[in-house]
Design a protein around this nucleic acid. Structure first.
Length: 113
DNA sequence: GCAATGACTGGTA
DNA sequence: TTACCAGCCATTG
């Protein structure tokens, strides 16, 4: 397992992540390099809550996981972190749509293993 | 316990 | 293709 139940989340700002937050972080950590998942996909694969909660989790504890592999349904990276995400994705050889600063979801979307 | 918030989504124009 | 609208639900004050 990549992440044990007792694995601490470095940089956790507000106390401990909620059980739901850990589920989200767990899944995000398993996204293979070069592939991405949309917020809706994460919520759907976990079958819990919705995309907005995924965004909230990443905003709070995303620093401990490859958050740049989670993008919007349109292929655009997290708002406010677009440049950073794009740079990371490019380093992983993820399929990007140059010019529009977006990810090619048709090719980069991860099915969930 | 209630109301507001948010790194979103899908449908419609 | 882009822009706007209403709905979504866990977390927070």
């Amino acid at each position: 397992m990549i992440r044990g139940v007792s694995t601490p989340r470095p940089g956790s700002p507000a106390g401990l992540p909620s059980p739901y937050a850990e589920r989200v972080l767990d899944l995000v950590e398993r996204i293979p390099p070069g592939l991405v998942l949309t917020y809706g996909d994460v919520a759907g694969l976990l079958d819990e809550a919705g995309p907005r909660q995924v965004g909230r989790v990443l905003s709070l504890w995303g620093g401990a996981v490859p958050w740049w592999r989670v993008v919007r349904a349109s292929g655009e990276p997290a708002l406010g972190h677009e440049a950073e995400a794009l740079r990371r994705l490019r380093a992983e050889a993820a399929p990007l749509l140059s010019g529009s600063g977006r990810v090619d979801l048709r090719r980069a979307r991860w099915s969930g293993s």
